[in-house]
Computed example of a mutant assay.
Amino acid sequence: MSLNAHLDTLKKKHRDMSEAIEQAQRAPGIDGLEVADMKKQKMRLKEEIARLSN
């Protein structure tokens, strides 16, 4: 897989994670720890994207 393709995949995962977090926050009874874990995963994706972009 080329670097650009890998970056595109990571960016798509980041967008998908953003949408999942928004949906989870709107859902009644969602576990706050689960949302926090999702946010951490999203942050790791963002950091990886930034690292590979430089």
Rank of each mutant, 00 (worst) to 15 (best):
L10M: 11
I49T: 06
D37V: 07
K39A: 07
N54Y: 01
E34H: 10
K46E: 01
T9R: 11
Q25V: 00
H14W: 10
L10V: 04
D37H: 11
K11S: 08
K40F: 09
E47Q: 03
S53E: 10
A20C: 06
I30Y: 08
V35K: 06
G32Q: 10
R15N: 12
K11M: 11
M17S: 13
S53N: 01
L10R: 05
L45V: 02
R44A: 05
E19P: 00
Q23A: 11
M17L: 10
R15F: 08
K39I: 06
R26S: 12
M17Y: 04
G32I: 01
R44S: 05
D8G: 07
E34Y: 11
D31I: 10
K40R: 15
N4L: 09
L33N: 15
L3N: 00
M43T: 04
M38Y: 11
V35T: 06
K40V: 12
L52P: 03
E22N: 12
M43P: 02
A36M: 07
K39P: 08
R15H: 11
P28R: 15
G32F: 02
D31G: 07
M1R: 09
L33H: 14
T9M: 06
A27F: 05
I49H: 05
A27P: 03
D8A: 12
A5F: 11
A36R: 14
Q23H: 08
I21K: 15
K46Q: 05
A27Y: 06
M17F: 04
G29M: 13
D16K: 04
D31M: 05
I21T: 12
A50F: 00
Q25R: 12
K46M: 01
M43E: 08
M38E: 13
D16V: 01
L52Q: 05
Q41R: 11
H14E: 14
Q23N: 13
G29W: 07
E34T: 12
E48P: 00
T9V: 10
E47M: 02
R51E: 02
L3A: 03
K46D: 00
N54L: 04
A36W: 10
M17K: 14
I30N: 09
N54E: 01
